[in-house]
Design a protein around this nucleic acid. Sequence first.
DNA 1: GTCTATAGAGAGATAGAC
DNA 2: GTCTATCTCTCTATAGAC
Lengths: 220, 220
Amino acid sequence: MPQAAQPSPRGERTRGSILEAAEALFAERGFAETRLEDVAEAVGIRRASIVYYFRDKRELYDAVLADVFAGLRERIEPVLLAPGPLARRIPAAVGVWVDYVGERPSLARLLLREVADTAREGGPALLDHIQPFFHLAARVLDESRDDPLRADPRLDPVHVASTVAGSTVFFVAAMPALLPGRGFDPLGEAQLAAHRAEVLAITRRMLARPSARLADPGSP
Amino acid sequence: MPQAAQPSPRGERTRGSILEAAEALFAERGFAETRLEDVAEAVGIRRASIVYYFRDKRELYDAVLADVFAGLRERIEPVLLAPGPLARRIPAAVGVWVDYVGERPSLARLLLREVADTAREGGPALLDHIQPFFHLAARVLDESRDDPLRADPRLDPVHVASTVAGSTVFFVAAMPALLPGRGFDPLGEAQLAAHRAEVLAITRRMLARPSARLADPGSP
DNA sequence: GTCTATAGAGAGATAGAC
DNA sequence: GTCTATCTCTCTATAGAC
């Protein structure tokens, strides 16, 4: 928001358009290769106007990440906090995840890039935006102390999440590239349904027959 | 190689060092954010000297990709072409894949980035480097016409490959970021073994109970 | 083969008018 | 709020000496 003043309706609309255009471009090209010029053009304004809403390029990028992850959280939180056994809630959350990525495929590419950037010294901002999901997970597990799944020491939530996230995100982003020529669309009804079924099967197997918990050298 | 002349031993060594440094930096930071200056510094030479070996930045990047994927192919080809049922060769190939990524984690990040770039118009060079794997797969399937797995129309090799690749690559790159603080090392003996077991279980399930083949709108 | 020096493009940030 | 104009920095690519 502009200088802590109350935003005008027009301003809110412009701001939203900038976010939308930036999300698409950052996802497609990455942070460094995206020119503010292109974002402005997509919105139909001039480059300098973007600065009115976002101090600089980095802040715009952060706002995009915040927006995308907030949307995901809004969807996942209710199904994870709903009553019922974990063995039911977790697959439900996985289904919601796949559907969300299907609707907002920018998330797939943004996440792919952020994860790849992980090794950098300065480090990406990913962690800030992922943090809420850790809190959510901690809360869910804490409130389900009696759940049989919770008791199984062989089950590593982070490992499950990594597998599910990795396969979906890769599927959505990679399939079109891997099937060259044909206009393959991983986001089509049938494709996405097939993938959802596959990921759910994987999830259920992991929950039913968890492998040894990964050693966690630093845990207290 | 320099101007089609026979390379001197010293030149070959320098060229190798450049490739090695470039691989690490491109993987960590991506193409756009990697400065030739840094590659040169890592090698201990000056920026201009790189041009002696690689016409420009893009060519260097391409050489890195070619090198990394060629290494993978060298490992996977023999196990896929070995005699025996597909139900045994495929898991073996998956095991080799996980081990290779463990030894050369740059591949994980490079692949993550390339896949994310897929949506770009100009398009990344990924396809050129992946092509040999398609040929390999086609050959293997062709030579296994009698294999029971081959006959199953519900089995989609690309889908299996995408799932396996996605989960491994994400695991290797994401785990250190997702487990902040502690010095988590997904490439450690135990972690990698646990992941390999997990991916193999996933693979075997997919082979044993394949889901419906994904519709392929453009296939002949 | 490797270096120094420099040219030149690209793109983000800033100042200030309307 | 949005624009024009400009400043400045970074980084690639090139020319040519050693």
